[in-house]
């Protein structure tokens, strides 16, 4: 069930996978090929016989660490940042403001070290690891979504959709959910690249400090041993994984951005 002037008409659900598929096809040369090249290179030049299999499973571990952290961190950070623009003095707004301002204080590798310290003290590794990687993504999302939400609710050109929705008599909850929030979240997904980089570097640090069998730990162990044949394929594969995560973020932006659901042609998306 959708509202008559909702930004997401019912057929949007049917169109949802299309940008994802398009972005994934675009990402083949930059994401899938490097990962395949890294695994192939590992099979060819690495000294261990099962190096390619280890790298493949290591990539899966790194993806399992980074993807949920990025998804949850970005979603929560975008909501908190948006709420900071709507109600800056509420609890959610204060959290959003803190996250938006604290980004540089909390890099992924430093939080990974905090998580490692906590694990040495007896805490559980998995939730702490995911939290450590999710916080930088949340900070980045809050930093981008807060000004975007302020623009969406403001008196400028970008607030036109919200003003029109209010003028047509929609209640405030619907206006925020269907008109303002997509405008606030779209720049977050477009700017996901920095969060992806922070998450990948943080995941490498986390894997190495906690001895997790990820691609990052494989790369660092090989580099410690002075083995270029072991570390370079892992680095190439990690670059591909980074490109894949970035492409997923762009696909999500294409799906969320209200400009892509407009009935009028728009070149800015």
């Amino acid at each position: 069930m959708s509202h008559p002037i909702c930004r997401f008409p019912p057929d949007t659900v049917l169109l949802m996978p299309r940008p994802l598929i398009r972005r994934l096809i675009d990402a083949v040369p930059t994401a899938i090929l490097p990962m395949a090249a890294g695994v192939g290179l590992s099979a060819l030049v690495a000294p261990q016989p099962d190096a390619a299999t280890a790298l493949l499973s290591g990539l899966a571990v790194t993806l399992l660490l980074t993807l949920p952290s990025l998804a949850v961190g970005t979603a929560l950070g975008a909501l908190a940042g948006s709420w900071a623009a709507v109600a800056p003095r509420s609890v959610g707004g204060l959290i959003g403001r803190f996250l938006a301002g604290a980004g540089p204080l909390l890099p992924g590798f430093l939080l990974a070290a905090v998580a490692a310290l906590a694990v040495r003290a007896g805490a559980s590794a998995a939730p702490l690891g995911w939290t450590a990687l999710a916080i930088p993504a949340a900070c980045q999302a809050a930093r981008l979504s807060r000004p975007a939400m302020e623009r969406a609710l403001g008196a400028g050109l970008e607030g036109g959709a919200v003003r029109m929705a209010r003028g047509l008599g929609l209640d405030e909850r619907t206006v925020l959910r269907h008109h303002a929030l997509p405008q606030a979240v779209a720049p977050v997904m477009g700017g996901l690249r920095a969060a992806v980089l922070a998450a990948v570097v943080g995941a490498v640090a986390l894997e190495s400090l906690l001895d997790l069998p990820g691609a990052g730990a494989l790369m660092i162990d090989a580099a410690r041993a002075g083995s270029a044949a072991g570390s370079l394929p892992a680095l190439v594969a990690l670059c591909g994984l980074t490109a894949l995560l970035g492409a997923l973020g762009l696909a999500a932006r294409d799906w969320i951005d209200p400009a892509n659901h407009s009935s009028t042609p728009y070149d800015g998306a």
Partner: peptide, 20 residues
């Protein structure tokens, strides 16, 4: 632009290890 989107920071530990 393409290079800025890659985790180039990983090159530093790689160099530190390989240039032992």
């Amino acid at each position: 632009h393409r290079l800025a989107g890659l985790p180039l920071a990983l090159l530093v530990p790689l160099t530190g290890g390989l240039a032992g």
